[in-house]
Simulated scan of single mutants.
Amino acid sequence: MALSTAELSLVEQRVANDAPSTAVAYLLWFFLWIVSGHRFYLGRPGTAILQILSYFVIVGFIWLLIDAFLIPGMIREKKNAIRADVMTQLSGYGHS
């Protein structure tokens, strides 16, 4: 079932309001890298803990550098999840 333009606008507004900030994610990555603050902020506590544990070997530092390139994709995934959740909520209200 298709959503109206107003409902789609509401979805995009919710995504804009609820999605994590790229700037904040990079600031956390830069300043709180030792505690993987950016991964906790982006809702990935499991991999954050793995990353912290892996700092005891060189892999953790390589992973941290790779995250600099992965942050935009993680934010895009989070926005898509928010968008899907809001669209599901709106669809559940019995629109035709």
Rank of each mutant, 00 (worst) to 15 (best):
H95N: 06
R44P: 01
F56S: 06
T47Q: 12
S21W: 12
I71L: 08
G43R: 01
I52C: 09
I82V: 07
L28R: 01
Q51K: 04
V11G: 00
R14F: 05
G94D: 07
V11R: 00
T22A: 13
T22Y: 14
L64K: 05
A2E: 15
I49D: 01
G46S: 09
A6L: 10
M1F: 14
L70F: 13
E12F: 06
H38P: 02
V35K: 07
A81K: 07
D67W: 01
S4K: 00
L70V: 09
A6K: 10
S54G: 11
A2F: 11
A84Q: 15
G37W: 07
I58W: 15
T5A: 10
V15I: 03
Q13E: 12
L10V: 05
P45C: 09
S96L: 03
L65Y: 13
F69D: 00
K79T: 10
P45F: 10
T47A: 09
P20N: 12
A23N: 05
P72D: 10
V86R: 00
F30L: 14
S4Y: 10
L53P: 08
L64V: 12
N80M: 15
T88F: 15
V86C: 05
R44I: 03
I49V: 15
S36W: 06
G60D: 12
I75Q: 05
V11E: 02
W63I: 11
Y93V: 08
A68S: 02
M74V: 01
N80T: 13
F56R: 02
